[in-house]
Design a protein around this nucleic acid. Sequence first.
DNA 1: TAGGGCTCGACCTCAAAGTT
DNA 2: AACTTTGAGGTCGAGCCCTA
Length: 346
Amino acid sequence: MTNIELNGLLNEFLTRWQIEDIRNMKLNDYVGTGNRDTFCQWVETKTRILGSIKGMTSIKFGIYERKKPNKKPKNYANGKKHSWLRAYGNNENEVFENIKSDILQIIKYSENGNFNKIDDILLPDLFKWKVAFLYSNERLIPIFKRDVLFSIGKHFGLTINRQITISQIHEKMILYKPFNKSVYDFMFELYERFGKGEDKLEIEKEKNIRKRKGTTKRNTKPQIRTTSSTSFIVEQKHNKIQEALKEKLSTKYGEENVILEENYVDVKLLQPDYIGFYEVKSSSYASQCIREALGQVLQYSFCDTDTRKKKIIVVGQYPANDQDLGYINYIKEKLNLDFEYLNISI
DNA sequence: TAGGGCTCGACCTCAAAGTT
DNA sequence: AACTTTGAGGTCGAGCCCTA
């Protein structure tokens, strides 16, 4: 499974389960026996290769449909067909609405990078952090098993006691992710070191399964969809950032000085003493945005015939972290460019 | 080619350990 | 003490391969 394929699977998930789909979701779209297209099926099984949350029972979803309606587990609340965590309410509908609103919260927090707020959500860790990962724009490392997380946390210098939160460990992992490695590469690396023996086996097994399946018809389908869905998601994000940037610049400099999409330049800003070329990128890390944008922007500013001074600004969604800043300074130094990185949150 | 045996994944139950 | 989390393990059925 290459990074591109993993990324394609993620985008397939995000295309199938957009926020609107979740808002409109009914209980039987969420969990259900025999239905392969439920949200929980996607999170647990279809995207298993993006970080497994197999192991615990279906109660990790907060509510599940029992295969044998008559066998009622005594630890949970039971309806005719469903069982759920008592804390979520007294009947199926109430419980499901509460869980749905929690899931929407998780997605919102995750998209905005407010990972510490996710700790307080009632759903079991395994499931809620997988959901968070899927919507995090690859800004979490997909490792979810408690013990493995604890070993990793310890390795990164955290004191593991009962006060430690999962988000703290995730923040550490993100911090230590080398910027030239994908979250999946880093996940495999960490799992190699900190996953227990049996877990390693499971991953090996999965790898083999994927390899074998790679040649069958079944696997070509998602790959074909991959390309289109990738650009779909990326485009959506790009447009959102571009809109937000335009708003911000218009407010500050006046609408008449902000030009969209002229000669393929995402946003151009006209000022008496300079022209700003803004190139918008949707990647998850500042360094990546810069890498993708620089060539383009240099060319635009070179081709523009205006004699005013030219400023180049690469725009991404997230603030630059320490590694990104190092990269930015390096480029500035080496290339002697009037160049900035700007983040616009959406 | 029917059917026995086997494996594997999916789903589920149980109970111990942990938490509040 | 009551409830939640978690690992271990059981059951079921689909799919595969082998053999009569």
